[in-house]
Amino acid sequence: MSSIKIRSKRKDGKTEIRTLIAHPMEHGRNRDPVTKELIPAHFIKTLIVRHNDKTVVTSHMAGSISKDPYFAFILNNGAAGDKIEINWVDNLGQTDSETHILK
């Protein structure tokens, strides 16, 4: 199952895009409460939003984004049937993407 959930709402010609991503977003300074060992850094570095295959948002981040990141953006246009694709890459090279069709 994809780590990415996408929701959209069209209103007055604009489209609100909300996304929730399952990711630990560890910044590498936390310690395991039991073993007291440092938990290695594991965070999303880059998130890209595409509208009908055109990049509309490029975002760079690190461990200061909360665990299981939530983002919302507003697209100036958008019509039923348009494709929204969200894709992330983390510092370990893992990646995921999800496509959502506007209603």
């Binding site: 990049t55 509309v56 948002v57 760079h60 461990g63 200061s64 984004i65 919302a72 953006f73 100036n76």
Partner: peptide, 22 residues
Amino acid sequence: VPLVATFILTPDMTPFVSARIK
């Protein structure tokens, strides 16, 4: 690490972003 995130928005986007930060 003071920088939380940067969002590069194309003219297709409304100047708006929402996120949850630490």
